[in-house]
Amino acid sequence: MPQTTATQRAWRTVLERIESDLLLGTLGPGDRLPSERDLAADLGVGRSSVREALRVLEVMGLIRTATGSGPQAGAIVIATPSGGMSALLRLQVAAQGFPLADVVQTRLVLEDAVTAALAADGQRDLGGAYALLDAMDDDQLTAPEFLALDAELHYALAEASGNTVITAMMAGLRTSIESYVLEGSARIEDWTSMAAHLRAEHRELVAAIAAGESDAARNLVHAHITGYYTAAGLVPDRRAVLTDQN
């Protein structure tokens, strides 16, 4: 079973605190993060939540962690958010609390445009998407970690499309998207099977884009988005989402 909603909120609390410190310049390259114990005590969360947040930040390339003792142990900042990453972190703050129906319908519109544009672009660069697909193949990822990488993948595809407005809108929606998909993950009894299903859908989608198959890619991204919300019990069924969109 995925983690509970309370644990998911705790994990997001840690991640958002560190992201805020990075954006404000309170933390910068070479700085060491407080220990897991200190972060847990300061934020009132469990150490497992701290570890999950640090793991995602490490996958994003913002920190490096090392076990043991000495000057190289613990979590050290190795990069600061810049460019698209900075926009991603800043804009998501403004997107708290959007209605689920609005989020789903907007995702369908935006990601339809993204997949169509990428499939039609012979110069497309999917390197970032492939790296995230590989990262999501790790069977040890928890549901929150997996879904954070999932959100990164969809954002990476938007960024690869070259449309800066769509990229900014996807960045602004990230918090709302993650909030709802995490809520839904708690309702999925067999998360291992769901994660495998999502991995396969991601691979199929990116393969269709790489092959220039625009119609197939658009159909796949629609099925992927509506399928998860339906399986997680967040919407009654796939037809309801598509009907509301029209």
Rank of each mutant, 00 (worst) to 15 (best):
P144F: 01
V206Q: 02
A101M: 06
V45W: 07
R124T: 07
Q96G: 02
R239Y: 09
L118F: 04
A223R: 13
A195Y: 00
A207I: 02
I63F: 03
S161L: 07
D244Q: 11
H154L: 12
A216R: 15
L147I: 00
L39V: 07
L24C: 03
L39A: 06
G61H: 06
L147S: 07
S176E: 05
A75E: 10
V77C: 12
A116F: 00
S176C: 10
L89I: 09
L153M: 06
G25S: 10
D102A: 14
D134M: 03
A158T: 07
I177F: 13
Q140S: 15
V114Q: 04
E145R: 10
S69I: 13
G46T: 12
A129S: 11
T192Q: 11
Y229I: 04
G162D: 14
D102E: 14
V50K: 06
Q72R: 15
P81Q: 08
A195C: 05
E183V: 06
D31E: 10
L27H: 05
N219V: 02
G97C: 00
R174G: 06
L220P: 00
I18A: 04
L43R: 11
I166S: 08
L147W: 04
V109P: 00
V50H: 12
T175G: 09
V56F: 10
M60N: 06
A94K: 04
R239D: 13
D125L: 07
V241I: 12
A207R: 12
R32E: 11
P34A: 15
T226D: 09
S48K: 10
D190E: 13
A117S: 15
L88T: 08
D121P: 11
D121W: 01
R55A: 12
N246C: 01
F146I: 00
A119Q: 06
S193V: 03
Y130S: 07
T67M: 07
D139P: 02
R90P: 01
A168T: 05
L242I: 15
A171F: 05
I166N: 09
E36A: 09
R51I: 09
D237K: 01
A168L: 04
A131P: 00
L242K: 01
T192M: 03
A195N: 00
G30P: 10
A207S: 14
P71E: 10
R199W: 01
R238S: 12
V114R: 07
E19A: 15
D21F: 00
R17W: 13
V14P: 11
R107E: 13
V235F: 03
T192G: 01
A232Q: 10
D112Y: 08
W191H: 02
V56G: 04
R12W: 09
V77M: 08
V241S: 14
L88H: 12
A135E: 09
S179T: 12
V114H: 05
M85H: 02
A143P: 11
P29K: 08
L242Y: 03
A73T: 10
L27N: 06
E183G: 12
E58R: 10
S69M: 05
L88V: 00
T167C: 12
M194E: 15
L100F: 09
W11L: 07
M136Q: 14
V114E: 08
A40H: 05
S49M: 04
M170H: 06
T192P: 00
G83L: 03
T13S: 13
A168M: 09
A53M: 08
